[in-house]
């Protein structure tokens, strides 16, 4: 356990370093794709904390992602807040929303928890459509480039610059990865895993299970909202499609594919699935077909996912 710290730091540092170096060899298109993958991977990492480690399957994470997305989009275009302020505000509101939803949804468990989260998320999606005057429904809000250029600590930051965007996404990913590693390797993380493995036993050992679960929902939802805000600000768009059920399923798929309950799994899953959909969309428009087939195949033949299998076969110390 103690000796693992060094190699874990080395492995995750190496992944981040590789991603940093990738920008010098990648073309424009690959660079943009990697930026997107990194932002979406933060979303998936947040999801994994709840599903992979705590064992709570949420079917409504799109509402947390959309919270960040719309706070950022409406805050900048309608209220006239600056980008750094709106980003922090989105994280704060994301935390509040996940606290409220978590407090309610955790009263249900098992299948009921999944359906409650699905219902809340659907209500949020319909609310976005209902207030189409402010959210512009599925047409979406476009954030002008002039808003995305701002002064910060004496420098001029332009989010339309591809290189800057790439490195910002990488920095956010590094922070999210750090948060996940810290939680997962702490005693707290071990309690979360204990809850996943046997909830009644964790209760019997004297842990306040509901509070630990609520903590997991809040961290997970806040990371999702952070990813949503970053997505809106970096790619200058917020639309209701990004709040639909499909976007609640995506992080589940990425997590399962990469390996639930591995810190690097969501990143790997997001990257692979992004590539699969990208290749599939070259010769068919039905990229959801790929999503459906991969989901079924994963459940049938590949329950542990990519990194889960790696951990089982070769690297038992993988967090």
């Amino acid at each position: 356990m103690k000796g693992d710290g060094a190699r874990i730091a080395l492995l995750h540092g190496a992944v981040l370093a590789l991603l940093f170096l990738a920008q010098f060899v990648a073309g424009d298109y690959v660079q943009l794709s990697l930026t997107r993958i990194m932002v979406l991977a933060i979303y998936a990492m947040g999801y994994n904390l709840l599903y992979g480690y705590t064992g709570l399957l949420s079917l409504g994470h799109a509402m947390f992602f959309a919270t960040g997305l719309y706070v950022a989009a409406i805050g900048t275009t309608r209220i006239g807040l600056g980008v750094p302020e709106v980003f922090l505000l989105a994280i704060a509101i994301g935390a509040l929303v996940s606290l409220a939803i978590g407090g309610l949804a955790l009263r249900a468990s098992g299948v009921a928890f999944m359906i409650v989260t699905l219902m809340f998320s659907q209500a949020a999606f319909l609310t976005i459509l209902y207030f189409g005057e402010y959210t512009r429904g599925d047409e979406g809000i476009v954030i002008a480039d002039s808003i995305r250029r701002f002064g910060f600590l004496g420098m001029t930051v332009d989010l339309a610059s591809a290189t800057l965007r790439y490195n910002l996404a990488l920095a956010l990913l590094a922070i999210a990865m750090g948060v996940c590693l810290a939680i997962v390797r702490s005693p707290l993380g071990h309690v979360l895993i204990a809850i996943r493995e046997n909830e009644s036993r964790a209760t019997m050992l004297g842990y306040d299970v509901t509070r630990y679960k609520l903590f997991a929902v809040v961290v997970s939802g806040t990371l999702s909202a952070t990813a949503g805000a970053a997505y809106a600000l970096m790619f200058a768009y917020a639309g209701s499609t990004l709040a639909s059920i499909q976007y609640s399923i995506h992080p589940l798929l990425w997590t399962l594919l990469g390996g639930a309950a591995t810190v690097l799994g969501p990143l790997a899953g997001t990257a692979v699935m992004y590539a699969v959909v990208d290749i599939a969309s070259g010769f068919t428009t039905a990229n959801l077909l790929a999503v459906g087939v991969v989901l079924i195949l994963l459940v049938l033949f590949f329950r542990k996912g990519l990194l889960g299998t790696v951990r089982q076969r070769w690297l038992p110390w993988l967090p």
């Binding site: 399957l57 079917l59 299948v111 999944m114 399923i249 589940l252 399962l256 959801l288 077909l289 999503v291 459906g292 087939v293 991969v294 989901l295 079924i296 994963l298 459940v299 049938l300």
Partner: peptide, 11 residues
């Protein structure tokens, strides 16, 4: 649930 979500997209 996961498998039938996949089936939903597939169909």
């Amino acid at each position: 649930i996961v498998a039938t979500i996949g089936l939903m997209f597939l169909i």
